[in-house]
Amino acid sequence: MFRYKVDKMGCGGCAKSVTRAILGIEPSARVEVDLGAKLVTVSGAAGPVGRIAAAINAAGYPAEPLCAAA
């Protein structure tokens, strides 16, 4: 499970864009978005944490990887 701080994410449309970006590279991942905390949690992802962050960044939302959750 990976967590990302995504400060520019502020609405439902932003959350959908971030989710689409992640699912575009990790179709089987489960994505949870907490808009209030500006956090994205990704589980079931096989790729490296940087690859997911790069996909979020490419969608226009700078993402800061946080420590992997247990």
Rank of each mutant, 00 (worst) to 15 (best):
M9N: 07
R51Q: 09
E64F: 05
D34K: 06
R3Q: 12
A29M: 06
A55I: 01
G24F: 04
A55K: 04
A54F: 05
G24Y: 01
A53E: 08
K16W: 00
L66P: 06
A63D: 04
A45T: 12
C14W: 00
V33A: 04
G12M: 10
V33W: 10
G36I: 06
C11N: 07
V40T: 04
R30D: 10
L23A: 02
R51T: 11
C67F: 03
A59P: 05
G36V: 07
S28G: 03
T19P: 00
E32C: 00
G50F: 00
K38A: 13
G13F: 07
I22G: 04
F2Q: 13
Y61S: 06
I52W: 00
E64M: 11
C67D: 14
R51I: 03
P27D: 08
S43Q: 10
A45S: 15
A59S: 15
R3Y: 03
A15G: 12
K5G: 01
A59V: 14
L39F: 07
K5R: 10
A68Q: 13
E32I: 09
S17Y: 06
P62R: 01
V33M: 02
A46Y: 14
Y4K: 07
R30N: 08
V6A: 07
A37T: 08
M9D: 08
Y61G: 13
A46H: 13
R3A: 13
A68D: 03
V49Y: 07
E32Y: 01
S17D: 04
P48S: 04
K8P: 04
M9E: 08
C14T: 10
R3V: 05
V6P: 04
N57T: 00
A46D: 15
V40M: 10
G12E: 14
C11I: 07
A37S: 15
